[in-house]
């Protein structure tokens, strides 16, 4: 769907060359939600602007839906842009226009006749959940509502791709979640490919299928969100994963657990997607004659299932506990590790 080859952007500021995006190559599949994460200054905002040429690439090729964006002339580029929606961190709505007129703006640009325009605007208002606010001005809306207008506006011309430049970074956590839900919903309903730039791992975790980690203009790590979560290789990635998971359990903490709970075996369960939905703990309690005590843990949901670790204390006959451990190993994809054996 989107293919990016050797994309670079060099800014010249005070006669110094600054490489914002450095020889970037990437493929994004249709219908995917592709996240790009990085700290500020990593070049991710420049990267997303290169895709619709709000910034002109220094070199490289961008192809969207078999159309080579980088070789288009001004007029062709304008037409191509009508099929690439974009939303922004600060929403960038026209304050002088009402909600419906803001959403109608891209339709005016595309030359859609007036009667069709108002029909389409109403559809979009319903889609993003802003019914009743048609006549409001942006200044009368909350941040979340403004971003909804931004999304409706970006979708007006039925784009194939939606670019999100830090679309939730100016919103509080709760509003962020509702906007992410909306994006997921749109991705689901319209099969739209979404490229999302963020510095919040939470956003990646919640809605992305694929993630690329950017540092100093380069992609340093890329893959399925769950893989990157479970096996982060680079230190930047590890830091981002910690944003969501908290720092990995220190050994001292585990030793502390072992000392506090003296009886039975202590198990560490490692959830790596899919099976988290299989009520593992209650199954263990029903199938085996053991007592379970949840000590500590954190599990979080990604698009590919849950991910995280859980420490449990098991009490009962040794034989029974061993069987339970075997059950987990053989019947589920949860990894289990006996942190402390029964004495």
């Amino acid at each position: 769907m989107i293919s990016i080859k050797g994309l670079s952007k060099i800014f010249t500021i005070n006669k110094k060359n600054i490489t914002a995006v450095d020889d970037l190559t990437l493929n994004i599949k249709e219908g995917e939600i592709f996240g790009v994460i990085g700290y500020s200054g990593a070049g991710k905002s420049t990267f997303v602007r290169l895709l619709n040429r709000l910034e002109e690439p220094t070199s490289g090729i961008v192809t969207i839906d078999n159309q080579e964006i980088t070789t288009l002339n001004t007029k062709e580029l304008r037409l191509a842009r009508q099929e690439i929606g974009m939303i922004f961190q600060h929403f960038n709505l026209l304050w002088s226009r009402t909600v419906e007129d803001n959403i109608a703006f891209p339709l005016e640009i595309a030359g859609v006749p007036k009667t069709d325009r108002s029909k389409r605007v109403q559809e979009l208002i319903d889609l993003v959940g802003l019914s009743g606010r048609e006549k409001a001005y942006p200044s009368q809306l909350s941040g979340g509502q403004k971003q909804r207008v931004g999304i409706a506006r970006a979708l007006a011309n039925n784009p194939k791709v939606l670019l999100c430049d830090e679309a939730t970074s100016a919103l509080d956590p709760e509003t962020t979640n509702s906007i992410l839900d909306l994006l997921m919903d749109i991705n689901d309903k319209l099969g739209l490919t979404i490229i999302l730039i963020t510095h919040e791992m939470h956003v990646i975790r919640k809605i992305c299928n694929q993630v690329a980690v950017m540092e100093e203009g380069k992609i340093v790590e890329q893959g399925q969100v769950l893989d990157v979560f479970t096996h982060p290789k680079k230190s930047v990635t590890k830091k981002f994963v910690e944003q969501v998971m908290g720092s990995s359990e220190a050994d001292s903490e585990i030793a502390n657990l072992i000392n506090t709970y003296e009886e039975g075996k202590i198990l560490r369960l490692h959830f790596l997607g899919e099976t988290t939905n299989q009520a593992l703990i209650s199954q263990l309690a029903k199938r085996f004659d053991i007592e379970l005590n949840i000590l500590q843990g954190k599990i979080t949901q990604t698009q590919a299932g849950g991910y995280g670790t859980l420490f449990i204390q098991t009490k009962g006959e040794n034989e029974e506990i061993d069987q339970a451990v075997r059950f987990i190993q053989e019947e589920t994809s949860v990894e289990v590790e006996v942190v402390r054996d029964a004495d």
Partner: peptide, 15 residues
């Protein structure tokens, strides 16, 4: 005028 709004208009393919 907010530069972002001009940028948004460009991203929609405005002349």
């Amino acid at each position: 005028v907010d530069k972002g709004v001009v940028e948004a208009a460009k991203s929609m393919g405005a002349k």
